[in-house]
């Protein structure tokens, strides 16, 4: 008798629905979470669609080879060849400046300093440096290069971008080097390799895909930067004239033309956006390919 009573109460317990309040709360929260997630995706989709919709009609060979047309002239070829070149030029300068420092700092953090106080300090400073607003890097480059040379220039722009790239390269290099198993270092050392040989021939060589991934991500970030270039490289309607003259860039061109009264300039801003996003995308895809190569080696 007692047994069947227990069975019965157990059965009702198991089949008893949750209270109305708790059910509503569950469903309501799930609904809200999904609506908010949808809202998060909305701008992204809208931005990408708009870039495609506005950018594609004007996308032709012409934009890659011509200079920007003078204001108000609609019958001459209109393009951003100089800006494209300027962006590549300044990102190149930035890479040349930041990669040696960044990679070496990454090597220090992962191979030499490891858990020492000095390394923790440098790592911390690098993380903080990584979060310095990009316009501050621009102000710094303005003070260092523009004020000293009395000239807005590609070098100043490249310097500003290098300040932004450096901590990124350093931190991603450290991460990539840390992924190399310690047993590789021990194997090299047990064959008599010194720290230089072990680091370069084994550790860096094994981590090269990872380092490249980090580098490409830094390049992609630098290519899209605008604020620091506004006060260092300025802009230009002409081809780059040496490293020490104002230089056009894709991002600054987009900014300058965004509020233009001339429709063809706004059009060009959208097309430049499409090309810039394309460049960033290609770099990111390349970096993912490198990352995949790394996982295959493992």
């Amino acid at each position: 008798m007692a047994k069947s009573l227990l069975d019965k109460s157990l059965e009702t317990e198991l089949h008893q629905p949750l209270g109305v309040g708790r059910t509503l709360f569950s469903w309501g929260m799930t609904g809200i979470a999904f609506i908010l997630t949808g809202m998060a995706l909305l701008p992204l989709c809208s931005i990408l669609l708009e870039i495609l919709r506005q950018g594609i009609p004007n996308l032709g060979w012409e934009v890659f080879v011509s200079l920007p047309a003078p204001q108000g002239m609609t019958d001459v070829p209109n393009g951003f060849a100089n800006a494209l070149l300027g962006t590549i030029l300044m990102v190149g300068i930035a890479s040349l400046l930041s990669v040696p420092f960044g990679v070496m700092t990454g090597i220090f953090l992962s191979e030499f300093g490891k858990t020492s106080t000095i390394a923790s300090g440098i790592r911390f400073i690098t993380v903080i440096l990584n979060s310095v607003p990009s316009i501050i890097a621009g102000v710094f480059a303005y003070a260092i290069v523009v004020i000293t040379t009395h000239q807005f220039s590609a070098v100043a722009g490249g310097f500003a971008l290098a300040v932004l790239m450096l901590p990124m390269v350093a931190l991603t290099t450290e991460e990539a080097l840390k992924l190399v198993p310690t047993s590789m270092r021990l194997a090299s050392a047990s064959l008599g390799g010194n720290s230089f040989q072990t680091t370069f021939r084994i550790v860096v060589a094994s981590a090269l895909p990872g380092i490249t991934t980090g580098l490409l991500l830094a390049v992609a970030r630098a290519a899209g930067e605008t604020a620091p270039l506004l006060l260092t490289a300025l802009s230009s309607q002409k081809w780059p004239d040496g490293l020490f003259s104002p230089t056009a860039s894709m991002s600054v061109l987009i900014y300058n033309y965004a509020n233009s009264p001339y429709p063809e300039q706004i059009q060009l801003a959208w097309t430049a956006s499409l090309v810039l996003v394309g460049m960033v995308c290609i770099t990111s895809i390349l970096s993912r390919l490198f990352a995949r190569k790394r996982s295959l080696v493992r």
């Binding site: 021990l186 194997a187 390799g193």
Partner: peptide
């Protein structure tokens, strides 16, 4: 030294053996 787990370098068989000699 030979370690507990095999730890060849992620390079060719030849380069693995030649590594110590080359350095």
């Amino acid at each position: 030294m030979v370690f507990q787990k095999p730890n060849p370098f992620p390079s060719s068989i030849y380069d693995n053996v030649a590594y110590g000699v080359r350095i």
